[in-house]
Amino acid sequence: MTTSKPTRTARRGRIFPEIQWTEEQFAKWEAEREEFYQRCKPIFDKVSSELIETHYNWFVAVEPDSGDYFVDKDLELASLRCLEQHPTKIHYSCRINETGVCGTI
Results as ranks from 00 to 15, higher is better:
T88V: 00
T7P: 02
W58E: 08
F36Y: 15
E32P: 01
L75E: 13
R81M: 14
I15R: 14
P6K: 13
L83Y: 11
I19W: 06
L77F: 06
E84L: 08
A31L: 09
W29D: 05
G67R: 03
I96L: 12
I52F: 06
G67N: 08
G13A: 01
I52K: 15
E35K: 14
P17Q: 14
C102N: 07
T99V: 01
E34N: 11
L77T: 09
V62N: 10
A61L: 07
P42L: 13
S79P: 01
M1F: 06
E34A: 09
L80K: 11
F44G: 05
L80M: 07
E32T: 08
E32F: 03
L75T: 03
I52V: 14
A27M: 07
S4M: 08
K73D: 12
V60P: 00
P6V: 12
C102R: 06
L83V: 06
I43S: 09
D65N: 14
T3S: 08
F26R: 15
A61P: 02
R11T: 10
T3V: 12
W58H: 08
E84Y: 09
P64D: 02
F59S: 02
W21L: 15
W58D: 07
K73V: 07
G67S: 10
T99L: 04
R11L: 12
R81F: 15
F59D: 04
I105W: 12
D65P: 01
D45M: 09
E63L: 10
L83K: 15
E30G: 01
F44C: 04
D68N: 15
F44Y: 15
S48D: 10
F44Q: 03
P42C: 07
C102M: 05
A61H: 00
D45S: 05
S48R: 15
E34H: 12
P87K: 10
N97P: 06
K5N: 14
